[in-house]
Amino acid sequence: MTNTLIHLSSSPYSSLACKEGLDLALVLATFEQPVDLCFSGAALSLLYNHQQTTKEDGKHLYKLLDGLEFYDIDNIYIERDNELTKEVDIWPGTKALDQKDWYALFSQYQHVFRF
C-alpha cells in the first residue's frame, strides 16, 4: 500500500490534464490506495463556485468535487492566502495550508504526480 498525492496545476479549461489527473485519483481510490489531492495555479479555478460552463468546455469537472467523499478522497489541499483564491467564493471542502506546511506536503508521499 502506497500513499499518493495528485497535484493539479493546469487549467481545467485549457487541456484534459485536470480531467485525467482526477481520473487517476478515482482509479487509485477504487483500488483502495490512499490518495490526496492538492490544487495550485490555474487548476484553482476548478474550485470556484458558480461556474457556468458549456458543452464545449468539457465535462462539468467541478461537480466531481462533491463526489470525492464517496471515493474516500477526503484531503484536498490548497495554499492559504493565495492570490487566486483570496477574493472568490471557492468550494468549501478544501484544507488550506500555511506556506511551510504546503512546501512540506510534497515530501510526505511515496508518489507525487502532477497534472
Binding site: L26, K59, L61, K63, L64, D66, G67, E69, F70, Y71
Partner: peptide, 13 residues
C-alpha cells in the same frame, strides 16, 4: 450530481 458512474466502493457508500 457528479458526472461519473461509480465503481463498487463509492456505490456502496
Amino acid at each position: 450530481k457528479f458526472e461519473v458512474s461509480p465503481a463498487m466502493r463509492p456505490l456502496v457508500k
